[in-house]
Structures are given as C-alpha cells and as structure tokens.
Design a protein around this nucleic acid. Structure first.
Lengths: 218, 218
DNA sequence: AACAAGCGGAGAGGATGTCTCCACTTCTTG
DNA sequence: CAAGAAGTGGAGACATCCTCTCCGCTTGTT
C-alpha cells in the first residue's frame, strides 16, 4: 500500500499548524480537559477544521505530546548523566517540576497513569530506571539521606506541582522555594539552612494563590 | 415573630439525620462537587427529600461544615497553646494536613478562597494570627530556620494535601512521611535525618497513587 | 474555468447536574 | 381509628457543557 498522500493544500497546512500551536498553548495553560471548541477559538478556526485534521481529541493530544514527553525523558537522561550525584538529583527535580509547572497538560500525561495508556506508559517505563539510578547514586555517595527511595521522587514532584499550580499567577517561580525546603530535608545533615531561591508570598499573593486553588476533578 | 417551629415528624427527623450523615461521609470522601443525587442515594432517600429539608446544596454544605471548620480553628488554637514551640508547629501541621486528608470537603472549604465566602472567610481570618504566632515563636526560639514565614504554612499544607489525596488508597498515612521530610527541611540545622514515620510506597502502591491522581478542575 | 479540497459553525446527541412536582405513603392527633 | 397534615420518592423539566457530524459555501490548484 503506497498511499502517496499528496501534500495538504497551502491554507490547510497553515491551519494545521495554527491548531497545533493553539493546542500547545491551551493544553499547557489549562490542562488536557479543555474543550476542542476552546482550542479552535484560540486557533481562529472552526471546530470542523480541527476534526478534519485530527480524528478526535486523543489524536490531537498524541500528535502534540509525543514530543513533549520525549523532552521529559531527555531531561531525565541529562540528569542521570550529570557527574555530581547531588547535582544530578537537583537537575532532575528542577527539570521535572519546572516542565510540569509550565505545562499543565504534560503534567497530567505524566502523573495520571489512568490517562496516557500505551504511548506514555512506555516512556514512563523508560524513565523509571533513570530515576532509580539517580537516587541510588546520590544515596551511595552520601549526599542524600539513606531512607529515601526512587519511589519518593514522583510524590515529591506531585507535591511541588501542587504548589506550582496554585501559585502560578502570584509567582510562577515560587515552587523553587519549596523545592529548596524539600532538598534541605533530603540532605543527610547540614549545619545551616540553604538560602531559599524565592521569597515567601506576601498576603496579597497568598490570597490569590488560595483563591486560585482548584479542587481535583471528581 | 415567634415562629414556634413545631418539631419535625419522627420519620422526617430520622431522614434529616441520615442525610446529614450521608453528606458528611460523601463530602469527606469525594469533595464538595459530588451531586446531591449521590448523597441521596447514600442516605437511601429520594432527592426530593433532601431538597425538602435543605433549600439547596449550599445550605447543606453550610449546615455541615460550620462545625468542621470550627474544629479546625480549635485545633489551631490547641497548637498555639502548646508550650514547646517546635511541638506547636508540628501539632499544627499534623492537625491541618490530617484533617484535610480525612475530609476532602473541609480541604476545599479551607483552601479555596473562591468558594466559602462569608462564613468560612471569618474563620480563616481568625486562624491567620494563630498561625503567625506559631511560626514567630518557633523562629524566635531558633527551632526553625529564620527564612520561613507564616505564609509558608498554607502552601506547605497544600503540598502535603496533594500527596495525601493521591496516596489515600495506597497508604492513607503516607503524607506523614513527606511531612517528616519537610520538617527536616524547616529545622535550622541537624546532624542526622529524623526517622521518617512511614515507609516509601512500593511499586504497586506507587502505580495506584499515580493512577488515582486527578487533574484539578478547569 | 472547473473542480477538488477545505472551511465554518449550527446543531445532533450524550453526560451530568440542580431542583420541581405531585400521586402516593406515613405519622399524629382528637 | 379515621382523617388530614406532613412527608416521600423519583421521573423529568431545564440547564450546561462536551464531542463530533454535516453540508452549503469558499478557496486553492491545475
């Protein structure tokens, strides 16, 4: 079956890119549950056009996130390849939380086993050993306490992801403050607090963060 | 206006209590967004009966949570009144996260400024100074690092609440492990890791926690 | 110019929720 | 113990919010 798919018409190709671009933006900002109508509006295109190009929402998500999830795996590999064991851990956590803070959709794909079945599952399986290695190496070198496990990292990422999301508007970098706190908790011992990279929220920002907090779905 | 409201008929009163009881259970387990149909089903009562007793969902929530929110305030006061500054802080955090871990609905009421307007807002205002005092006292006594602020506590509570929710089924006490980690991060210095109260999740539990994780609403 | 390709967006159809209504049942009371 | 008041269940009216289809019209290509 050759299926020499002839190229899209010029305008159609332009629209396809607009849709992808809009989807990237909207999924990143508001997660995977946004409606396709919202994406179509952002792309300044009719819903019909979206459906002409992508059979359904799942297909659009796939087309878009294959790459993003790959980026995440690459980030994990970079962290694993980092010489210094402590640096490797910090690189991974900053990378993981940072990417998820910037991209709500990516976060949902990575964290919610229930959704991404086939495709993402394999990437998760690929990342797991990298995380394990990072943690084991840090433990072996004595830079983190012995009682942590590779299974702690996803939970730590989740925790910080929650802060990142709530405080996104008040201060999109605030999660780094709490990452600093957690990192100080991970060290086996220390003589002084490591300076935190971000100041605490002021009253006004705290209010906004709490107002913005949203209960989880169902 | 005397309005000598005559008592409810015996069966009606029984149903009222069943509804309250069911609502307590269901709101605690699944948050404030459950439908009244679900509550009616749990109470083994028709929806109509629910509406006869409570004009709308908001009224039911109010009737129920006035007390729970008060409990929270009482807990904060107990913590404030605790002699030892470190103990006071730990008491508060354990209490706050514990209550929110057990009661999804309470968490939503306390954390989401957007929802609980009048009633809860005043309780929040009442709690804020207690939290401030707890933090200031701990800082002054040198038991926690100087760069934390009272505004950090709500965020820390949120973080741990996220873990608690995700891991509820795998291990409902798991949040204590991460609270332990964060507390070690809050200390000004230490020579060894404080033993963590809970073991990390095993693979199977981790899977369940990640599958159970739900993206926030909208 | 002719025709294939593509487009927009109204709307069909499905979920899911809140709340109303009323024929029927169950208490209470004289 | 009868009769009327109080209470009940749950179907369904309405509303909201999605996904995805359809088709008359527009645009690009050759």
């Amino acid at each position: 079956m050759p299926s020499v798919t002839r190229p899209l018409r010029r305008d159609a190709e332009r629209n396809r890119l607009r849709i992808l671009e809009a989807a990237r933006t909207v999924f990143a900002a508001r997660g995977l549950e946004v409606s396709l109508d919202d994406i179509a509006r952002e792309a300044e295109v009719g819903v019909g056009t979206v459906y002409r190009r992508f059979p359904d929402k799942e297909a659009l998500i796939d087309a878009l996130f294959e790459q993003r999830v790959g980026d995440f795996a690459a980030m994990a590999e970079t962290a694993r390849a980092t010489e210094d064991p402590w640096e490797a851990l910090v690189t991974f956590l900053e990378g993981a939380v940072g990417m998820q803070a910037e991209d709500q959709g990516l976060k949902e794909l990575l964290l919610n086993t229930a959704r991404g079945q086939s495709r993402v599952a394999s990437v998760r399986a690929q990342i797991a050993p990298l995380v394990a290695e990072i943690v084991e190496r840090a433990k072996a070198s004595g830079t983190i306490r012995a009682d942590v496990t590779y299974a702690d990292l996803p939970l730590i990422t989740m925790m910080l992801g929650a802060v990142a999301e709530a405080s996104r508007e008040a201060n999109p970098e605030l999660w780094r403050r709490y990452l600093g706190l957690v990192l100080d908790g991970l060290r086996p011992q220390r003589t002084a607090p490591t300076p935190l990279p971000q100041p605490a929220l002021e009253d006004e920002g705290l209010d906004r963060a709490m107002a913005g907090w949203r209960p989880p779905r169902r």
